[in-house]
Write a protein that binds this DNA or RNA. Structure first.
Lengths: 185, 185
DNA sequence: AGTGATGTTCACCGATCAGTATACGTACGA
DNA sequence: TCGTACGTATACTGATCGGTGAACATCACT
């Protein structure tokens, strides 16, 4: 990606996330990245393609963030709920909720690339939970993974409320992991 | 509300929910309701006001739906998780997720009436869970209510995924209620 | 010296946006 | 019978939308 392309992507990421996709026009993105609209179209071809790139970048950054939190844990049991710890610090600087859920809300067309990216992101987290649960020796990793995914998404979705849901969700998640017998311990 | 006003509101509800708020113009709503744009503005004054009305109507319908499901339960313990049963049938004909979460994704401005409606809807459900938990004799209704709310929103948010999360969420919710000692039983 | 990629400037396209103006019809209640 | 509310019809405003055309500048690499 060229220098101008990177500036465009950075501006698009911030504007799309903070203000939503539909209400943000390509002119605004070009202006914020100090670039002509012509350059934007030379680099990305269309707004839809720029949206897809925006989501892909976000997905990559988020996965790296979660993976780092998981690998920082030595205890395999603690590693299972590490994504909840990552969610706490992540959402401190991402107060507009999940970019993918928001994108799906704005783009009803299932053929839009946003749907593929969003679905794969959630499935990635689900698989991660299942793998971690298996490594921790939990007897029913698939069931546990589904429960943890629901708790994770629920905590994320209730962030804008004047309730503290993140810590209770993480606490319940840890309880669920501990409740399952861990033969390897 | 006049007959024309009702037709406009009905068309707005369907279009806003199915296609999103921003991409649906007032011309389209007027056309779908068989009404002139002039009539639309005579009745609602502005698009923002129409959006607020749309969300208020949806909120009212949803609360009635959940309340009916709760009141249909004789056992107070089963009543606690009745909103999860309501969610199952509700989401069968509402496949685009939560209208309020979607609206927040499109309307970042916290001053928009959509934010107030959405927040109050979630808090209403939270209070409902707490009241039902209290009536069922649960010793920690506030804690349980937060957990049930997170599970509910999580199940709702993961609906578009090719995973069955609704039934596992409801099952876990019932387990949480049963786990708490119920002195009244 | 030549060539292709990157980027700029500026003007432009048709379509759509939210919202308004004016004038006319129709039904109902005082 | 007269006024008022409800609704229609058509035309219009200025702004913004996503996207394009054409000409020109800069730089690196061969």
């Amino acid at each position: 990606m060229t220098p101008a392309g990177r500036r465009i992507a950075a501006a698009a990421e911030e504007l799309f996330y903070e203000r939503g996709i539909t209400p943000v026009g390509v002119d605004l993105i070009a202006e914020h990245s100090g670039v002509t609209k012509r350059t934007l179209y030379n680099q990305f071809g269309s707004k839809d393609q720029l949206v897809a790139t925006y989501l892909a970048i976000r997905d990559q950054r988020w996965r790296s963030y979660v993976s780092a939190a998981v690998e920082a844990r030595d205890d395999p049991v603690e590693a299972v709920t590490a994504p909840f710890d990552a969610l706490r610090t992540w959402s401190e600087s991402n107060t507009r909720g999940c970019a993918f859920v928001n994108a799906l809300a704005e783009l009803p067309d299932p053929a839009h690339p946003a749907h593929r990216v969003a679905t794969e992101q959630k499935l990635w987290l689900s698989r991660l939970f299942e793998e971690l649960a298996t490594e921790a020796g939990c007897p029913h990793p698939a069931t546990l993974a589904t429960r943890l995914l629901v708790l994770h998404e629920g905590a994320l979705a209730t962030q804008p409320l004047p309730l503290d849901t993140l810590e209770p969700s993480a606490e319940l998640a840890r309880a669920l992991v501990r409740a399952e017998p861990s033969p390897r311990r």
